[in-house]
């Protein structure tokens, strides 16, 4: 089991305590292609944040590839995110003053990979995603689909075990959405990367092989 959640609870304490996750138990095997669906406010983004070690949880256990993810230092957290997990965001979250290739290089920079090597790797990944000619363009010179593909390249470059995508097609038109989903499916097939996609779009969910529905902080599969 690559991801093993046991009775995860999470409460936000912003003035009024808000119990968002009410005992989530979930297992995801390596190589799965999973979607997490739910209405807004259902807790799916919180779940994704916990899976991505971006946020911590109150009670329960989260085992990631045999390691208990709990009370990690900032350093360890950063290290796990860097090596184990790739992120794809709804709004792409590319750094606007860096070119496509520089954006893709960034995770390797934090791994301490030499400039020449990380540039070569980033170019290779851009090439695979058909963006070689756009390598030296800035994000605001690219279309949404292109930006999302740059973001996918950035997520892939560290060879992560898991890719977490938060509404990856949320800002794209339907045609590009299909392209991006096909790309993700292809990567899942060919690279054996575990894909976890959070969405509220049924057509996106239908592309995945397993759908986890979440409602009011409880899983109803």
């Amino acid at each position: 089991m690559l991801i093993d959640l046991k009775d995860i609870n999470k409460t936000y304490n912003n003035g009024q305590p808000l119990h968002v996750l009410k005992g989530i138990t979930l297992g995801i095997e390596a190589g799965e292609f999973v979607s997490i669906m739910g209405a807004s406010g259902s807790g799916k983004s919180t779940l994704l944040n916990i899976l991505g070690i971006l946020d911590n949880y109150d009670t329960g256990e989260y085992w990631l590839d045999g390691t208990l993810i709990k009370n990690l230092s900032e350093r360890q957290g950063a290290d796990y995110r860097n090596r184990m997990i790739g992120f794809i965001f709804q709004s792409f979250n590319l750094i606007s003053f860096k070119t496509a290739v520089e954006n893709v290089e960034l995770p390797l920079f934090y791994q301490g990979v030499s400039r020449r090597k990380r540039h070569a790797m980033a170019m290779e990944y851009l090439d695979r995603l058909g963006l070689k000619d756009w390598a030296s363009h800035y994000p605001n010179e690219m279309s949404g689909g292109q930006k999302q593909r740059v973001a996918i390249a950035r997520a892939l470059i560290t060879h992560p075990r898991i890719i977490l995508a938060d509404e990856p097609t949320g800002a794209l038109d339907s045609k590009t959405s299909v392209e991006v989903m096909d790309l993700l499916a292809q990567l899942n097939r060919e690279e054996k990367v575990t894909m976890i996609i959070v969405t509220h779009d049924p057509t996106v969910a239908s592309k995945t092989r397993r759908t986890i529905r979440i409602k009011d902080g409880i899983i109803e599969e």
Binding site: G52, L54, E74, R75, A78, D79, R81, N82, R83, F87, N93, L94, I95, S96, L106, P107, Y110, Q111, R154, T158
Partner: peptide, 16 residues
């Protein structure tokens, strides 16, 4: 904030 958040998400340590 967003830029720094992204950097943190893709593996930058606070020291970075």
């Amino acid at each position: 904030t967003i830029e720094i958040g992204i950097r943190r998400a893709i593996g930058a340590t606070p020291r970075d």
